[in-house]
Write a protein that binds this DNA or RNA. Structure first.
Length: 276
DNA sequence: GCCCAGGGAATCG
DNA sequence: CGATTCCATGGG
């Protein structure tokens, strides 16, 4: 893969194991929308437009500084996914999942955004999660001129449950507020979690009312890239009952989160293969 | 009208 | 510990 820095765009040429459709539409992030051939979203308060044509990926209207300091990490470009994909394809149980979407990668998102997004995700569906997150940004995030930043803990903690009613988030209102209040007040220290183990990070996140093991694992995986996190939602439980009733083989635990993403995306698109 | 959705808290045994 | 029930809302 070669990175080409142009005046106002960055090109990733001859890239492998990278597919925008699979990365941005596999249930790990909720702020990207595709129109025509352009995926558009907001990363670190910046509007981002990306397109892909085969092995060529183009980041439009961006700078070398932003790409090197933010986007490179966001798309996990320093990680060798071909090695993981190769390993998974050699496992006859997992091979179909890797062959189905070999371009999946894990995004390194903002911890607070990931936290609130996955609180919203509980007992919900992806389409509605995206809709609620969009309304959340439009009503409580900073107006960046044509688009909105994800609200800060302070911005959200100033809201009341009545204010949050516009989200139509139902019973999750109080969970969102508790998370924002505890993070803004320092009761939950999100930046400290970077240096914590998986278990310690879980303990810290579960202090929030409305955050259990599943949401915590999603935050640890997608917000902190703790690759040993293995979130089990209703779909993953269904898939695991068929693929690995005895649990995930230990040889995968170091990067179980990536395996999880292959499996999750596969069952979402092939549910009939997992019916009881 | 019914069932379900990237769950978790509260309660009960 | 595990099992059950309730929680708001919208799409299929």
């Amino acid at each position: 893969m070669k990175i080409i820095y142009d005046s106002n765009k960055i090109v990733l040429d001859n890239i492998s194991n990278f597919n925008l459709d699979e990365i941005l539409d596999c249930g790990q992030c909720f702020r990207f929308y595709k129109t025509e051939n352009i995926w558009e979203g907001v990363v670190a308060k910046q509007s981002v437009q990306i397109s892909q044509d085969g092995n060529r990926v183009v980041f439009h209207n961006t700078t070398k500084e932003f790409f090197d300091s933010v986007l490179k990490d966001y798309f996990h470009l320093n990680y060798d996914y071909s090695a993981v994909a190769k390993l998974i394809e050699a496992d006859e149980i997992l091979a179909p999942t890797a062959r189905f979407a070999p371009g999946i990668r894990l995004l390194k998102q903002d911890p607070f955004e990931t936290l609130i997004s996955f609180i919203i995700s509980q007992n919900n569906n992806i389409k509605r999660i995206k809709s609620i997150v969009k309304t959340l940004c439009e009503n409580f995030g900073e107006d960046m001129g044509g688009y909105y930043a994800f609200p800060t803990p302070k911005q959200l903690s100033n809201a009341t449950t009545q204010d949050l009613a516009v989200l139509r988030a139902g019973f999750r209102d109080k969970y969102i507020l508790d998370a924002a209040t505890k993070v803004a007040g320092g009761e939950v220290n999100l930046s400290s979690i970077y240096n914590m183990s998986h278990d310690e990070g879980r303990t810290e996140l579960i202090k929030i009312h409305g955050v259990g093991t599943k949401v915590a694992d999603c935050v640890l995986l997608y917000g902190y890239q703790k690759l040993d996190a293995f979130p089990l939602d209703v779909w993953m439980k269904r898939a695991m009952a068929v693929l690995y009733p005895e649990g995930l083989p230990s040889k995968y635990t170091n990067f179980g989160g990536i395996v999880q993403q292959y499996i999750f995306h596969y069952i979402r698109h092939n549910p009939e293969k997992f019916e009881a």
